[in-house]
Simulated assay, not measured.
Amino acid sequence: MSITDALIGAYALPFMGRALLVLLVLAVVAGVVGVLVNLRGLEFISDGLTHAVFPGLAIGLAVAGTAGLVPGAAIAALAGAVALTFLMRAGIASDAAVAVVLTATFSVGVLVVSRGTDYASALEELLFGRVLTIAPVDVLPLVLVSLAAATMVGVTLKQQLFRAFDPGASRAAGDRGLVLDLVLNSAIALVVVAGSSTVGALLVLALLIVPGAAARLVTRRLWWLFPAAAAVGAVSAWLGLSAGFAISVGAGVDLPAGSTVVGVFVLVYAIILAVRLAVDRAAAPRRAAQGTPPAAEGVARNAGEG
């Protein structure tokens, strides 16, 4: 199989075209939302939300089959987002709140799945995704869920950034912290819904965390973080699907598509990190000659770009 066949020709197949469309939209939106997750330090809360959707996925699958996955996950995710937001604002430590939601909801999901006749198959699909078996009727709901998350973040983006960097000043300016937290956590939850229905509940966190973390290695410009994260997500999703297809079809090695996509996300991050470290090391003598430490140089650059 040629590289062109893997990167382009494979998507003439209907199931590959559907997978690419959903993953590209999801990866771009997850990248944008993930920047705010990274800036706010909400990685563990995002992990809690990935587990909070599991009972919704399980109940939706039990009640309505695959058609019930997105509605069930959406209800569970939004309920989890609201619960986590109020638990944290009530003074409960965020780690404790996440642990309570994570363990309670995940156990409920496993109990629901265990009542089915095909326990192992259903559990594997919910945990590790079904990106190559997305039905045509599921494409639009998954895209709309992703776009809803993007809209929620886009409408409140300036306020979200203000709250991320200076919560006190944000409150003094009249921003309502509870509303902003609910909006952001709900957007994260919706991304988790779409991701859990494609790459699975255990792997969706990579789509949220990796692009934003990679973007912070690529640029120090605040507003460039969002397109950089979206680009990293989109390219990683495309390369991940292509690599999985090439290895499975061309080499005859059966690889789970969702795990392959996530593996490529991590690989892309590792490459960007290696390049960043190499660039910083090459620039170290110049900084030493100028007497400017790396951190100070970054601050000066940001000030000039503002």
Rank of each mutant, 00 (worst) to 15 (best):
G9A: 14
I3Y: 14
V29W: 01
L126F: 10
V249M: 03
L217S: 09
L205E: 00
I92G: 12
T50A: 13
V235M: 00
A274R: 02
V137T: 11
A189R: 08
L144V: 13
R216S: 05
R281F: 15
E305C: 04
A164I: 13
L127K: 02
A97E: 03
R281K: 15
W238T: 02
A90D: 11
A296K: 07
T117S: 13
G31E: 00
A58T: 02
V37G: 11
A27M: 08
D5P: 02
W224H: 12
L24E: 07
T156R: 08
A194P: 07
A96T: 08
V199Q: 01
A83I: 06
F86P: 09
T66A: 10
F162N: 10
N302E: 10
G56E: 03
Y119R: 08
V153I: 07
A99E: 08
V191L: 06
I92F: 15
T219K: 06
V179N: 02
L157Q: 04
I188K: 04
L132H: 03
A230M: 05
A282H: 03
F44V: 12
Y269G: 00
R171N: 12
S94N: 04
S94R: 07
N38G: 08
E125I: 10
L78E: 14
T85G: 11
G304Y: 07
S121G: 14
M88R: 06
T50K: 05
G17R: 10
V113N: 13
G306K: 05
A300V: 03
R281C: 15
Q290E: 12
A27S: 13
A83M: 04
V131A: 15
D47P: 02
L157V: 07
T151L: 14
L255K: 09
